[in-house]
Amino acid sequence: MAWGSVLWFLLHWPVSWSSPITYLGVLVMMHLYTGLFITAHDAMHGVVAPGNKKLNTIIGTLTAGLFAYNYYGRLYPKHHQHHRHVATDQDPDYHGGNFFLWFFSFARQYITVVQLLLMGGSFHLLQLWFPQENIILFWMAPAVLATFQLFYFGTYLPHKGEHDPDNKHKSSTQGRNHLWAFLSCYFFGYHYEHHDKPYLPWWKLYQEKDRLVKGRQTV
């Protein structure tokens, strides 16, 4: 609802390059796009509507689709494959190369020709009602930026490099800073915590972070 409401407002906003609202709008929409994907991700773990599998799938399909026509039915098996085979050759999210090669590999896994055609068609359709610059600034650009945001904070940073052999999830984690963790990727920088307890929704990951930090302090 937040994504749709803010987007509707910004599509009608008279774009002014001297107004901070223009730039803030791009950042807010980027954050909300990331939230769409995080909601779809939580649906893949069955925690959006626990006990109601059909509703959980509907919400996951809707939020994935609103994010540049991602297809939930395609994302679901790949994400669970990532959890089963994290940081191995069987992990669709993993690549041992540098940032750019890794992102290219990641994009090949999740961006399809059908998505690009649907985005292109929607872009031309939206121009019937809204200014082109609004569509680019507030609908298209934030989706691209959020894709980089999700990849960088939710895949690349947690899984890059060598991990301690005792690290069973082959995942690192951000330092405890709940505000930054929320703004950067809805607490998914607390990535070890997510892999350790994938049944926790995004808004409970900070509690698990606190529990682990306090546990280490008392040792």
Rank of each mutant, 00 (worst) to 15 (best):
L66G: 13
A146S: 15
L183S: 07
P92H: 04
K209Y: 06
A2C: 08
N134I: 05
F100P: 08
R211I: 09
V114Y: 05
L183W: 10
P201T: 07
N177K: 01
P198Q: 09
H31Y: 14
Y190S: 09
H83N: 12
V113Y: 01
G215W: 03
F187T: 02
Q149T: 02
L137M: 14
L150C: 02
D164H: 13
S172L: 03
D164V: 00
V47S: 14
W202P: 03
D210T: 09
V6L: 10
T88R: 09
T57Y: 07
L212A: 07
S18Q: 14
W8P: 06
D196R: 08
K197D: 14
Y152S: 03
L117P: 06
G51M: 07
F106D: 06
F153L: 01
P158K: 04
I58P: 05
W17Y: 15
P20W: 08
H82S: 10
E133T: 09
L157P: 01
W139A: 14
I59V: 15
A181W: 07
W129H: 13
L117E: 09
N52C: 06
M44W: 01
H41Q: 04
S105D: 15
K54W: 10
K214C: 06
R211A: 15
Y76P: 03
E162W: 00
Y206T: 02
R74E: 09
A181D: 11
L145M: 12
D91K: 04
G46M: 00
Q207P: 05
G96I: 02
L205P: 14
H194N: 09
H31G: 11
F130D: 15
